[in-house]
């Protein structure tokens, strides 16, 4: 894919489509609290959809699909692919709540690798999967290639934002912070790849920026189960040093109620 083409795709993904903004009454009414560790999330006691974004981080073939980068490095892809189904289920629920924001990220580099740090390239070569070289899923970690695409089960809908990033953290070298602040988002729910690398870096960046973060254990995965467990444990230390941990089931329990309330409100408006 030519550079201007993926540029166009990104621009499309970043557009704000006509999204009904919640009225003040709805925003107050639609709120809840999620059972999480080490505290009931969020800290201010209310999950308000209009101020919350679901982040689906790097659910790309390169990280959780067959013949992608992680597969090429010799790791068991199931340890990352396990996150796909629970994330798909969660997305379905979140999309039924109109004012909820969904943002996807994709790690990858420009075709000319101009945004690839030389040491990142060198290290990937050493592990036998050099970024930019041809692999079974196209050029490894290069924008526009098959391996770089989000897995088909989680394909973003039109109007859902996609942020392309050159690093592990989703805030460095991207417009994510600007997008979140422009929408008045203060709370983030993190899912994606991988628990100890991309997700953890993003959660740390978000926490330093004052966002209230929740990570979903079953919607993440790592190349090494010990790292997965350790990364989640680190979040919960010191009263939640980076936020809180829960499962998609716990979140869905609260979202289900919000979704029903939202439907009831819409119905109410229609009959007036």
């Amino acid at each position: 894919m030519a550079e201007h083409e993926y540029g166009r795709l990104s621009a499309l993904g970043n557009q704000q489509w006509k999204r009904p903004r919640p009225t003040g009454a709805a925003a107050v009414k639609l709120s809840g609290e999620v059972v999480a560790n080490p505290y009931a999330w969020p800290y201010d006691g209310r999950l308000i959809p209009s101020r919350t974004a679901l982040l689906v981080l790097d659910m790309q073939t390169d990280f959780c699909g067959k013949s992608g980068y992680v597969d090429r490095m010799g790791y068991d892809v199931f340890s990352t692919a396990r996150a796909i189904e629970p994330t798909r289920r969660l997305l379905e629920m979140v999309r039924s709540i109109p004012e909820f924001t969904v943002i996807y990220t994709r790690e990858g580099h420009r075709p000319d690798l101009a945004d690839l740090a030389p040491n990142k390239r060198w290290r990937s070569r050493l592990i036998g999967a050099e970024i930019g070289t041809e692999g079974p899923a196209g050029r490894i970690l290069v924008r526009g290639e098959p391996g770089w695409q989000i897995v088909p089960q989680l394909t973003p809908l039109p109007g859902e934002t996609i942020v392309d990033k050159p690093g592990k953290g989703s805030f460095y070298g991207t417009d994510l912070d600007l997008i979140l602040r422009s929408r008045g988002i203060t709370h983030l729910i993190l899912t994606g790849m991988t628990t100890d690398v991309g997700v953890q870096s993003t959660m740390r960046e978000a926490n330093d920026r004052g966002y209230e973060c929740l990570i979903l254990e079953d919607c993440t995965g790592a190349t090494d189960i010990d790292n997965h467990v350790a990364a989640l444990n680190m979040v919960t230390m010191q009263g939640g040093v980076f936020g809180a941990v829960t499962t998609s089931d716990q979140l869905i329990r609260v979202l289900l109620r919000l979704s029903l309330e939202s439907a009831r409100l819409t119905e109410g408006e229609l009959t007036i």
């Binding site: 490095m73 290290r123 990937s124 050493l126 592990i127 592990k168 100890d196 690398v197 190349t223 090494d224 010990d226 790292n227 350790a230 990364a231 444990n233 680190m234 230390m237």
Partner: peptide, 21 residues
């Protein structure tokens, strides 16, 4: 780290996957 387990895990995360960090 205050907890040695966190320290060990954090050290491993630095150098794993071909020096990912």
């Amino acid at each position: 780290a205050f907890d040695p387990g966190d320290h060990e895990a954090a050290v491993r995360m630095i150098w794993q996957q071909g020096a990912i960090f």
